[in-house]
Design a protein around this nucleic acid. Structure first.
Lengths: 335, 335
DNA sequence: GGCAAGGATGTAAACGCTAACATCAAAGGG
DNA sequence: CCCTTTGATGTTAGCGTTTACATCCTTGCC
């Protein structure tokens, strides 16, 4: 396998200096238009491929933005990443994406590996990290953005919302529909901190209405949420048969619960109202349609990308962005 | 913002040469255990972070493996990527992931950008690419693996299965259950080549059984498949009311179709049998459970990673891996 | 005790590119 | 007509690491 050609080879073939070749491959450089064309042609002939590694080393700019999310297979995180990638790649950055599988140790490891690539900014999901991870992020010397949460002690910038406060919307809605014996499903997994926050918010909102909030049922780790939701619904019905509403930690768990109701012949919403979280596609399609909260994942991604670009352009400071999730009421909680 | 410390700084602080520091950060290098400890300590004190860019340039090894998938938000591609990432990161490689949004032009662009990072292997999804993309992959000088398909003209190695042939399993199953007026939903989108292959396979399988296969209904581009499935089911029922079975291009489309049946009071499977593709979680949870095909996405990822590691270790050639998808029969096609 | 073998460390150069500065020709202004 | 300005190109050095080789000090063996 022959060594791939370098700028030197292109320069020789084009009869110019290496520097001119370098300029021919930049956007704004001052090169004669004719020369540039000619160099590009020669480069194509030789099969030259620009070496970003060498360029990065010399210019001390990697054009990388590191992003970590808990799970690849999640429509919400995916939407955030899609928005991020779109906006950042337009600005010439490349996203270095990694998934932690909801594991803070894996996140720490991933951040360590990413830092070796000298990213120009780091976007992480959530506000809870290992102590070492926090240190690494703090010392990274580049903008750090925590998303999807309002961390108690932000490391750098934040684009997110309070998962806890948002539950107020759902509880208010259900109480407004006359429901009182409301259960919460999920939020028991150590690894899903957003789920925990939602459960905490549920407890607070219930207490605000003077309602008892002891109908809590776990749905386990965030993997296979639909299956877990179905199982959990069984447990809930066995334990608290007179429940008249269920708020689920996510739409996926909610759909599992919904299908278990269907299997058992329990009418939703007549007998039990059901609500989810996340505005996943399934909430819009299932029967009955699922009341949910839209956390605006695309907006999170766009705002985070905007913040990064702002912080990387003018060194001036930039504002955190608060996201305002919206209630989407549907059949599953009506009447 | 102060410049981040380099090996030189660590070397000075530790009273050794840069080379010794370099060796202290490698696994197998010959450094005194005491010296290594000491250097590591000094490095931590200084907040030294290894610079992979410089290392890559000098050693001409990037430790990157580039991977492109059509969509981030797809449980099957995600599972493949998770398997890939797991196996490759254990071997010390970092995955450079990009999504094409089912757009071959975007794929071409992405491959071009990835190549600048000098990945040591490239794994793409599917066997259809733009001519320029094919050229880039061929000339990349590194292993290329096409997954999820059996390309008519493979560029390098292949880990996949025939989407067309796999449809035989579903058609045989439905015919075995006594269904004859079988429709196919989806496969009309230019951008979803696997969907097209599945529809072609459906036509071939039907013809093999001597059955008419004119009940075709499109479900459009692969975005929002559930919603599209619901709409398409409406169209199908209007156009071919006497249909007794539907094979959907994916479980997600299938679930949309299923929910539309539920809305319209059409009994599945009594009146119409329904089958999907992909073995998504939802197929296992919905009511009735959806008959589907398991394309073994994790196996695809593991085999692809295995192939990459094999090709990168000993320069010997390695075998393509054929995946054998499996039928998972369920209620939606029984009786 | 001498000498080979091997482990630990050091020195110099290079990976492929770009920042910074220098050079040169053509153009423009008084 | 000379001097400044501008645009196009070249020269040099260096980004932070590792390769390749050299050196030195042990260690073990006859």
């Amino acid at each position: 396998m022959k060594r791939s050609p370098t700028m030197k080879d292109v320069a020789y073939a084009a009869g110019v200096s290496v520097m001119t070749v370098s300029r021919a491959f930049k956007q704004d450089a001052s090169v004669g238009e004719k020369t540039r064309q000619m160099i590009r042609e020669k480069a194509d002939e030789l099969g030259y491929v620009f070496d970003a590694t060498a360029a990065n080393l010399r210019s001390q700019r990697s054009d990388f933005v590191a992003v970590t999310i808990p799970s690849l297979n999640n429509a919400n995180f995916a939407a955030t990443v899609v928005a991020l990638t779109g906006k950042l790649s337009q600005a010439g950055y490349q996203v270095l994406l990694g998934h932690t599988n909801y594991d803070m140790m894996r996140e720490e490891e991933l951040i360590g590996q990413f830092l070796r690539r000298r990213p120009e900014a780091i976007i992480v999901t959530g506000g809870r990290h290992t102590e070492r991870a926090r240190q690494m992020l703090k010392n990274a010397g580049v903008p750090v953005i925590e998303t999807w949460d309002i961390p108690p002690e932000p490391i750098g910038h934040v684009v997110g919302f309070s998962n806890a406060d948002t539950m107020q919307l759902l509880v208010d809605h259900l109480v407004g529909m006359g429901r009182k014996r409301i259960a919460f499903m999920g939020g028991d997994s150590e690894s899903d901190t957003r789920g925990q926050d939602r459960r905490d918010g549920f407890l607070a909102a219930m207490s605000g209405h003077g309602l008892q909030a002891d109908r809590l049922v776990g749905s386990g780790a965030p993997q296979k949420p639909m299956q877990k939701g179905a199982t959990a619904m069984g447990a809930l019905l066995d334990q608290f048969p007179d429940t008249d509403a269920v708020i689920c930690v996510s739409d996926l768990v909610g759909f599992g619960a919904l299908s278990e109701c269907q299997r058992r012949g329990i009418a939703v919403p007549d007998q039990i109202a059901m609500a989810g979280f996340g505005a996943y596609d399934i909430a819009e399609v299932c029967v009955p349609r699922l009341t949910t909260i839209d956390p605006k994942p695309t907006e999170i991604g766009e705002c985070a990308a905007g913040l990064v670009l702002q912080l990387l352009s003018n060194a001036s400071t930039a504002e955190n962005k608060m996201i305002a999730p919206a209630l989407i009421p549907a059949q599953s909680t009506s009447a």
